[in-house]
Amino acid sequence: MTSKPFRYRKDLIIGIVIIAVFLLLSFFIPGTSFLLARILIMMLFATGVNIMFGYGGMIAFGNAIFLGFGSYSFILLLSKAGIPYAAAILLTLVMTMIFSFLIALLVLRVQALTLGMLFMGLNLLVYNLGNYVPLLGRGVGISYASRPSFALDDRSFLIFTLVIVAVCFVLMYKILHSPFNQIIKGIRENEMRLTFVGINTKQVKRLMIVVSGTFCGISGVLYSMLNSGAYVTYLDTDISIQGLAMCLLGGMFTFWGPSIGAAVITFINVYIGGMTIYHRFILGIILILVIYFFPGGVLGYGNEDEVSARKFIKKLIPSGKEKKDE
């Protein structure tokens, strides 16, 4: 955290460059708009996951719940309840916040490794619900043309997505560079000491899950607009794991890292995933390579944060049994 204004300016420039690249690509290479929009949405999702994972220090094994919840509730509100468009979006946001708060209440009853397992279990529960409940389309999902009326074709939808995602990124950046971030970092580094200072760490963690869940929910809404419907694959644990892999690949202790990971993994998914049925193989290879060669992610290599960050993961899951003495 040296010379803050410079940092802000640097990240602002990066953001503008990313927007420019996306616009240029969509105008000069025809037919890429759909892919680019998907990449953007996944960037939002991955950064949302990273709020919980990289910044919050919780093992986020189930963020597909939020993505799926956002998209399903948006589509259901539109198709079954017949609520006007803008109201549906707002209502979905509020509902996602409440939902992620409830999830946070449940998940935070346990810590570290168990939290990850519980989160994944919840994800599986929700996935099964999506598979069996008639209202949710019984494993097929609900198709509904849900793009906004001014952005029906791919390119204008890309621009719409770009605007929304940019707003979300600015919000996330503000949140992650506010004094609140210092508390978050503190929790990541040494939770017990923060409780000594008088901070209700559980409440902060809850808040983090709500923030993370809300942004993942927004990405879910966008995703359902992109694909015209909510499908049960959104709830799959594969999506959650991919979100984690994106964070890891790009660098989970950096702001832009997850975006890079999202771009790479989505590209691979679309291009190579379309060619073979062995898409899990690719994900496995990526995971293993990252673990061996870029433990801090592509961007996190040699980052000043990395050393302290490594320490924090050690704390996250204590390797010995020293916890017993506490």
Partner: peptide, 12 residues
């Protein structure tokens, strides 16, 4: 390495 990486390795 941190146990998280070992966990992700088994996943991979």
């Amino acid at each position: 390495r941190p146990p998280l990486f070992q966990l992700l390795l088994t996943m991979g």
